[in-house]
Structure formats: C-alpha cells, structure tokens
Design a protein around this nucleic acid. Structure first.
Lengths: 232, 232
DNA sequence: TAAGTTACCTTACGACGTAAGGTTGGTCGG
DNA sequence: CCGACCAACCTTACGTCGTAAGGTAACTTA
C-alpha cells in the first residue's frame, strides 16, 4: 500500500505482517514478490534477504495467522466441562479466522503441517483425555472435528475462500428455471430466507451453522464417551 | 503424455478428459495450457478454440469429475432408511473422489457453485425431507455434512491435497523432541499406531475416520429428527 | 469454383518466481 | 585512522505462465 521511508532495516516479521495485510486487502492472488516489495518500499529481489523463496513466504503467512489464533485462544477461561471448553476455543479461533477468510485455502496448499498446529492440537487432545476419552475415541474426534478447531469448515455453498470473492450469480430467469427442477432446494430457500431479504445464496448465517455442527459433534462424542466409560 | 495422431478434431470433452488424466498423473501444478496441448499433440493457443480461458478449463475439469461422482451415485440401491441411503451415497462418492485427490483443492478455488452440485444436493435434500426432516433441520444438516456428500473432508493432518504430495517429515531426533513437549499426541500415536508399522503420520485409516465422522453426524441428526417430530 | 468457416499455428507481450552478480553504508580488528 | 568485511538493498536477465492478435490450410457449401 504505502511505501515506507523507514531507516531501520526490515525483518522477517515485518515482511510477513505486510504480506498478511496485503492478502487481507487484496486477496491471495495479489501476493506477488514484486507487489509485496512495492508495499514495503523495496525491490522484489530484496525480499530474498529475509525469506528464501515464495513458498517460505506463504509458510510464514500461515504461521503468522496461526500465531494470531493461538494468541486468541491461549487465555480463555478453563471452567466448564470438556465440551464447553472446546466450544469456547473453537469459536474464539473462528473469530480470528473470520478476519482472514483466505486462510483455509492457503493452509490446504501447505505440504507440511505447521509445527504450531501440532502444539495446538496437543492442547485439544489434552482436554479430551483429561475428560476421560480413550486415545482411540479422541483420535476419531480429532478427525471428526476436521478444521473446526481452527475455526472454519469446508463450505461447498459459500466459496468465499476463492480469490476475488463469489461471482455474480445466475440471472433471475435462470434461477427460476433451476428452482423448477429442484423443488426441495427452492422450498428450503423460501422457508429459510425469511430473515434475510437477500435473494442470493448468501442467506446462510455461518455462525449459527458453525455452532450447530459443532454441538452436533460435541454431543455425539459425549454420548460415545459415556457409553465407552460405562462398559470399559 | 502421448501425442495423438488422430484426424478427427478435438472436442471440449476430449480436452477435459485429457486435463483430468494429466492432473491425475502429475498434479494440479502440471496443468498448464502448453503442457495440456502437448499431451494432445497440438499447440497451446489451439486450446482456445475449445475453451475460452484457463478458468473455464478448470471449471470443466471440476464438472467432469462431478459427473463421474454423479454417475457413481446415480444408480445405487434405494432401500433402507435415510441414514443408510445417504451413507451409501457419500461412501460411493468417496470412492470416486479417491481417484482424484486434488479435487477438493480445485473445487475450493471455483468462484461459482457448479450447477451440477445444486442438482446433487437437491437429491440429498429430498432424501431428508422424505424422511420427515423440517426444511430448517435439513438445511442445518447440509451445512453439517460440509463436503462429505462429495466424498471428502477437510483434513488438516493429511495434506495430500497439496501439490506434489506431503513433504518428507521431520527427522527422527526432531520427532522425539516434539513428542517430549506433546505427551498426549505422542501417547495417542503410540496407542493407535499398532496396526501400522509406518512411523510417519500416515497411520490414520481415512476410510475408518470418514465413516466414523459420517455416522456421528447421521446419528446425531436422526436423534434431532425424532425429537423434533415428537414435539412438533 | 468462390466464399466462408473451422481448426489449428506463429509470434509476441506483460507478469510471474528467482538466479547471478553489483552497489552501498556501517562495523570492527589492526 | 583504515582497509576488510558484511548486511541490506538493487539491477539485469532467464524461463515459464496465460493469452491477445493475426495468419494459414483444409473442409463445407452456394
């Protein structure tokens, strides 16, 4: 955005912070070495004194956002049973993740699991083990949570993760034709749309859906935990 | 791969099939206009007589794989309650998706929902409505399923979706050091690794995890369906 | 047979990541 | 004080990408 006139040299951290800001403002497609360098008031090749390659830049961006999530979730209250604790943690992570909607897509392009993720999941696992989970059930639970611990879900029906935001939808006429061949979808949209005047498919309240799915998983796991504990 | 000596002109379908084959064989990063053209025995610019742009090519690749899933799930038996039916369908979709592990990542870069996805979800929605779901609960269920109807889950801990496959992991020494700071993860891996001699993090049986998560969701939704039906 | 259309090709442009090597200005041992 | 060193930044250039512009050759049709 704005060239810096600073005299103190850059650092890896300053570069990564600028990269996050750039992606937040203009999407992941805008993160090029030249553009990032321009934002920092230097030339593209100078970035290579702070980072070995673009892949390392992307790794660093992921790491930066993960640190933000860590900071958000590290100091939450610890009262309540395991469900309340994890629920609080996942919802807090979601608040951080909402500031960086491009993060899920970027994370899924990383070829190695960022070390910080291990530490993060260690904490979640500890919460479940302390609550009496077997390692097996806790393992299954981690898979079932998917990416929810980091605050997002794979959403087929709201591709905000794609660069540049969603395309302008189909026309009114096409939509009517579609609805005719898909009566259930049409009826569902009609029934659920009442609290939003927006006729596009942006009518879903992601927060409500996220919490519903999370509770569905937590309650199901709690049931399994109890039955396993009773018979084991 | 092999240049064609065919005399009949290409078609959009042949181009898309070649693109899918190319990505299956060499990863999404290998799908460039020049490379695809070479595989087809033509020049890059000639592709533009069949497709308007690379984005359209990617859309077409997604559409092709979705059609494959449709074909796989269209003729399944329809006996059983809604849970058995959806379970059968999602697992069949998964079999198709396993042949194209790059598909989730590609799908998440599409800016518009492919029309075929609407039709696919119409069928799932119909199954639930016929089983007595309210539109509201069915709507929540669709969100809870996430991408499971298409046969995949967002897996933080197995980034096979990234191009080029997973990186060679940390060293033995680093892993030991990590384990010391993460006793629960270490214990879980030790407890769960017994049925696989592979000491890397590839020890999770994705099929088992997928089915576990799916049943967790289906059973939870069935309970909600019943209580809603009883009180409503 | 002439005109048009279809399917393919050639050339070229600007953006990308980055290899190779140059230019500063400050630090520090002698 | 000075010359070696080095960190931080710059210049130039290469190969690859998607694709705009326009050419050519073969087949179709009036």
């Amino acid at each position: 955005m704005a060239a810096k006139a600073s005299r103190t040299p850059l650092s890896r951290e300053r570069v990564l912070a600028a990269a996050v800001a750039l992606v937040d403002a203009n999407g992941i497609g805008a993160l090029t070495m030249r553009r990032l360098a321009a934002d920092l008031g230097i030339e593209a090749m100078s970035l290579y004194h702070h980072l070995p390659a673009k892949e390392a830049l992307l790794d660093g961006v992921v790491e930066t956002v993960l640190a933000e999530i860590d900071a958000t979730t590290a100091h939450l209250p610890t009262n309540g049973d395991w469900r309340e604790r994890l629920r609080r943690q996942f919802l807090a992570a979601r608040q951080a993740m909402l500031r960086h909607p491009w993060m899920p897509g970027l994370l899924s392009t990383r070829r190695a699991i960022p070390p910080r993720v291990f530490a993060y999941y260690e904490g979640i696992l500890g919460t479940m083990i302390d609550a009496g989970f077997s390692y097996r059930l806790a393992h299954r639970a981690l898979h079932a949570f998917g990416s929810m611990p980091l605050g997002f879900v794979q959403e087929i029906f709201s591709p905000g993760a794609a660069d540049g935001g969603p395309e302008d939808g189909v026309s009114e006429a096409e939509l009517a034709a579609l609805a005719e061949r898909m009566p259930h979808l049409a009826a569902m949209t009609a029934a659920e749309m009442h609290d939003s005047a927006d006729p596009t498919l942006g009518w879903c309240d992601s927060q409500v859906e996220f919490e519903f799915t999370l509770d569905l998983l937590l309650d199901g796991l709690e049931r399994l935990r109890r039955t396993a504990g009773a018979q084991g």
